[in-house]
Amino acid sequence: MKFTDLNDEQVEGLIGQVLRIGTTVSCGITFIGLCIFMVHNARAIPHYHIFLSSLGQFYGPSQLMQHVMQGQATALIELGILILIATPVARVAFLVIAFALERDHMYVGVSALVLVILLYSIFFSQ
């Protein structure tokens, strides 16, 4: 299959696979994280009725992988959530490339704009 022969259905099929794999991996990691969390906290009393901001439970990019490697429960769940958020972003990025290969300049612009809005909101918006 030459890339220039790519049609919309094939592109969508490929994207569908990417999304499914991303979701499966993300949920798998999250589930492992949840199980480890239960090993340590099963008898603790939950306190979700009071909002305390969960921000303190999240690791920065530099520490996350280190804690994941140590099997730290919330770090694994965080990684799962981040992979999940990345799946729709990957879908949009993929479409930018697909439209470029189809030489559809207008929709390269449209999907690139969506990608910029997404990346801006994920990394910078307060």
Partner: peptide
Amino acid sequence: GVTAAASAGIYLRRGYVDPALSAP
């Protein structure tokens, strides 16, 4: 999914996403 991803960054930074609650 794309729409929700656009609000996810703000939600994470504001501490709305609790890991142990969001996982199940």
